[in-house]
């Protein structure tokens, strides 16, 4: 059963996501970043697919958290503030705080956009963007990208199975990293080879037709949603202006 968030107009969801992403990018403090990231996670919680979306988050969040903590700790080792020795790396509270802001920006970006994509049928998203004047050429590029993602997953599974049948062992983390080498080449080359046939297929689906397409789905909109979208755009502009003023005013 779709939730109220799921049934929002695609542009309303995108506007909310945009506000959160811009706010996370401009946030100067860890606590504010945590609050913004929490708000992004709330949109996930408001979706009926919250369980399956949340299951994917560790795959995004854990590697970026570990790598950013190490990178920021090594590259910006401000050892004046309470240095901490982590296996030879000297971290500091300031460095960790700085890393946390980056991590929270990334998590906000992923949570906000991933929730929109997972709760909005692609046709509706395209419909909404096309209604606002998205050029057909951009829609074509987006479609090509959307086509390739599920096919690349299937292709990657097939390549890995083929490599495993030839003796490739995938058990530990190092073996998984080693398995990437024989996977990436065929995966990328195969996807590129398919691009011509995919674009032929879109031509055969009259995608290049110049007439106004028929939309099979009806987008539900309301005055309240239009007001929210306007407010979101206003907030983004205000945050951008404030950031410029803070940066450049003496």
């Amino acid at each position: 059963m779709p939730s109220r968030y799921d049934l929002l107009h695609p542009l309303t969801k995108l506007s909310l996501a945009l506000v959160l992403i811009v706010a996370a990018y401009l946030s100067p403090s860890v606590w504010l970043s945590i609050a913004i990231c929490g708000a992004a996670l709330l949109t996930t919680a408001a979706s009926h697919r919250r369980g399956e979306i949340a299951r994917v988050y560790p795959l995004f969040f854990v590697p970026i958290t570990i790598s950013l903590l190490l990178i920021r700790g090594v590259l910006v080792p401000d050892v004046r503030t309470s240095p901490i020795d982590v296996g030879g790396f000297v971290l500091s509270l300031d460095a960790i705080a700085g890393a946390c802001i980056y991590i929270l920006r990334y998590c906000t970006l992923v949570a906000a956009l991933f929730t929109v994509i997972q709760t909005t049928p692609t046709a509706q998203l395209m419909h909404a963007l096309a209604e606002r004047g998205l050029p057909r050429s951009i829609e074509f590029i987006l479609l090509m990208a959307l086509q390739i993602i599920p096919d690349m997953k299937l292709r990657a599974d097939a390549i890995l199975e083929a490599q495993q049948s030839r003796g490739l062992v995938i058990a530990s983390l190092p073996s998984r990293i080693r398995a990437l080498v024989p996977l990436v080449g065929p995966l990328v080359v195969g996807a590129l080879v398919d691009v011509e046939e995919r674009s032929m297929a879109l031509e055969l689906r009259a995608f290049a037709a110049t007439n106004r397409p028929t939309r099979m789905d009806v987008l539900v909109d309301s005055t309240a949603q239009r007001v929210v979208r306007g407010a979101c755009i206003g907030m983004v502009i205000a945050m951008g202006a404030a950031a410029v003023l803070v940066r450049y005013l003496p």
Partner: peptide
Amino acid sequence: LSQASTQISGVCDTVSGEVGFALANMGVPV
């Protein structure tokens, strides 16, 4: 074309939507 998987538009969530995708692009009535 020979490969069915490369001919899926990716924009339709259902088989019926996919089958009607070209007609929709041509502006045929619902």
